[in-house]
C-alpha cells in the first residue's frame, strides 16, 4: 500500500488532537508543554507533506517547518525556565494548584 498525502494528513490531525487533549486535560505543567510540542509537530508534518503535494518546486512549507522547530525550541526553553521559577516559589507544578489569580 502506498503512503499518500491523506495518510500524512490523518497522522497530523491525530497528533494535533492528542496534543490538544493533553494540553487541556493534563495537570502537570511540563506535560502540557510536551503536548504543545505535539501540536507544533503535527503542524510540521502537515507543512512538509503538503509541500510535497502542492508546491514541490519551492519548498516553502519545509522551510516553514524548520522555522517552527527553532521557534518552538525557544518557546519551550522559556517555558521550562518559568516552570522552574514557579516550582521554586510554590513547590508544585500542578496546573490546578497554581490558582492564586482568578475572577
Amino acid at each position: 500500500m502506498a503512503i499518500t498525502l491523506n495518510h500524512y494528513l490523518v497522522l497530523s490531525a491525530a497528533l494535533f488532537t492528542i496534543g490538544l487533549y493533553g494540553a487541556l486535560a493534563k495537570r502537570n505543567a511540563v506535560t502540557i508543554l510536551m503536548c504543545l510540542e505535539l501540536m507544533f509537530n503535527a503542524a510540521n508534518i502537515a507543512f512538509v507533506a503538503l509541500t510535497r503535494a502542492v508546491a514541490p518546486q519551492v519548498l516553502t512549507g519545509q522551510v516553514f517547518a524548520l522555522f517552527v522547530i527553532t521557534v518552538a525550541a525557544a518557546e519551550v526553553a522559556v517555558g521550562l525556565a518559568i516552570v522552574l521559577a514557579v516550582y521554586r516559589q510554590r513547590r508544585t507544578i500542578d496546573a490546578t494548584e497554581i490558582d492564586l489569580l482568578k475572577w
Binding site: I82, V83, A85, I98, L100, L101
Partner: peptide
C-alpha cells in the same frame, strides 16, 4: 503571582 501569570501567558 508573577510566576503564575508568566506560566499562564506562555502556555
Amino acid at each position: 503571582r508573577a510566576g503564575e501569570a508568566a506560566l499562564k501567558y506562555l502556555l
